[in-house]
Design a protein around this nucleic acid. Structure first.
Lengths: 328, 328
DNA sequence: GTCCGTGATGAATGCGATTGCAGCACGGTT
DNA sequence: AACCGTGCTGCAATCGCATTCATCACGGAC
């Protein structure tokens, strides 16, 4: 059997209460006794039983992370960072893959979240109403890459991202730029469309933004968008994410259109795959690791304000080989 | 506060013991009482407290999954499948990213694994000795994509994978095939080298296999291997994994070598990215989802044999656009 | 010398669910 | 009528730990 606190106490010749204090409230125990207990504990290989501790303290030492798809590099990157930061803070991470399903998402938050010290809900597909429902538990909840009224959140600056991308294209000489949007209902897609609005076109003379509509945020979505972009006569396409940008690249090549000579392509997220293709993708880099770390920090000790915290992280355009001046 | 079993019992007019049995050992309770309790529990939104249950049963309902890198698509795919299967079996998954570090890996198994019902150790970097150490706990442990004496494991058929790949290349007419190996000490790389051994060259007349040595199993490793392959005069290269194959593709293109016209390239794993590049990668598809599912099944109810279970899953060559007959 | 404050310690309690054991009612057997 | 087996049910103990409260020793102040 495992070593319990009683074993340590017995071996050290103290009561379980003293042993407990020596390990988790050191100030309350006389120095030499404290060190004795700690040494004995180490020698015996004592590990506190999380269940017993949770039962009495109410804290499990677990965080729950819910993502739509673990295989999506965006969420994989966030999950990795969350895991690392949580571990540094002494917490384990229970991850749940919601398989892009809003219902499953809500269920997972309810089931798994109930046994955790807090829940990180990543890019939820849920409607604002359902979101309010799952947040009704007193369990701390933090939204990642999505905002909602009354809930704390960490997001990336989507508006600024598309602006940086479009300014880059405009500076290269492009005047007709297409946006290949993400799925309908996507919160981040809505923010990006805001960034493309009047304010931007006002600031950039001669610029026309063509909306190519909503697409699945995957390779196939980009393939479909490519044909629309060509039909619309755009010389540059900004994609909702990198996966779609790869689809664009592939379809354009198939149709004999050279990138970046004939058409420029810009992605979003800076997924690792962006550097693995030819031409390497110009893309808006989202600080995914920082997103994950900030989320954990904010969840574990929330600022003591009345309003829930809302953090937006800056993004940065990374120019690679998929953008160039338009053909003369 | 949360609804406890006592609340349910009181509301249903029975003792906590009966309420407990009604929910988790239904046969022991009279039918009408049982249904009453279950209805009341549902109406009150009762959720058993995992900590309390763990304390007495010793089972936590958690599995622990340790992987070297969550962002690696290979492990992301396995993690996704593990998570799904575990959930179906009523278990939550605690994931730990070992950051490719054998020491951290061992520590994570010790810390996190101690509080779980079982540990899935994915492609451990650990030495066989350290492996034996961490397995010394009575906690069930299962190796994924690695074998070791005395431990149960689920692997893919690495030997057969390289054989299928090389047979394919030989059938296309290639006679000088290079192998760009993975990192030194990699268990799966060793198995693949076995597959390339005498048995294969005996069976395929005229075939020569050139060993390009060990490389980091990433894009940059493939880039380095590309130059070696060209210098060795190979007309086809088999890479340790898809990431390296992408590096090969990129470097060959940069040097003006056409794929597949001049040189054929074959990857391993069939990571999602294999279809996202041009030319789409011919690769050995590892059944990653099945790997994860099988691992969970085997961990949760191990066969009652003396020897620990060893399962090898079949792989399948997927021919895409990166292989063709060699130049005349 | 007595009293009180201080700091260190241990005994006891409880967190919520499970489970061995005893008790109870009931129907059938001798 | 006495007895026994069967089927349910409840009591109470238990898991490992944190924490409250009482106790005790010690030293300084009066």
């Amino acid at each position: 059997m495992a070593v319990t606190l009683r074993d340590v106490a017995r071996a050290a010749g103290v009561s379980p209460a003293t042993a407990s204090r020596a390990l988790s409230a050191p100030d309350l125990v006389a120095p030499e006794r404290r060190e004795l207990v700690r040494r004995v504990a180490r020698e015996l290989g004592y590990r506190p039983n999380r269940a017993a501790r949770e039962l009495i303290t109410g804290r499990s030492g677990h965080l729950c992370l819910v993502v739509p798809d673990l295989e999506n590099p965006f969420f994989a990157a966030v999950a990795k960072a969350v895991q690392a930061r949580a571990r540094a803070a002494g917490h384990a991470v229970v991850v749940a893959d919601a398989e892009e399903d809003p219902l499953l998402e809500a269920e997972l938050v309810g089931h798994l979240g109930a046994q955790a010290d807090g829940v990180l809900l990543c890019s939820p597909r849920m409607s604002p109403d359902d979101l309010a429902d799952v947040a009704a538990d007193d369990r701390p909840l933090l939204l990642v890459n999505r905002e909602a009224a009354g809930l704390p959140s960490v997001v990336i600056d989507n508006r600024d991202g598309v602006r940086q991308a479009v300014r880059h294209l405009h500076a290269l000489g492009h005047r007709r730029v297409a946006y290949a949007g993400g799925p309908p209902g996507s919160w981040s897609d809505a923010r990006r469309r805001e960034g493309l609005g009047g304010e931007l076109t006002d600031a950039l003379p001669g610029l026309e933004v063509v909306d190519l509509g909503a697409h699945a945020p995957v390779f196939a979505g980009g393939v479909a968008a490519a044909d629309l972009a060509l039909a619309a006569g755009a010389t540059a396409v900004l994609a909702h994410n990198d996966l779609m940008a790869l689809g664009l690249l592939d379809r354009l090549r198939t149709r004999g259109v050279r990138v970046p000579d004939d058409v420029s392509v810009v992605g979003f997220d800076d997924a690792p795959v962006a550097t693995l293709v030819t031409p390497a993708l110009t893309t808006v880099a989202a600080p995914l690791a920082r997103l994950g770390r900030t989320a954990v920090d904010l969840l574990l000790d929330p600022p003591r304000t009345d309003e829930p915290a809302r953090v937006a992280l800056p993004v940065e355009l990374v120019v690679r080989a998929s953008t160039a001046p338009p053909p003369a």
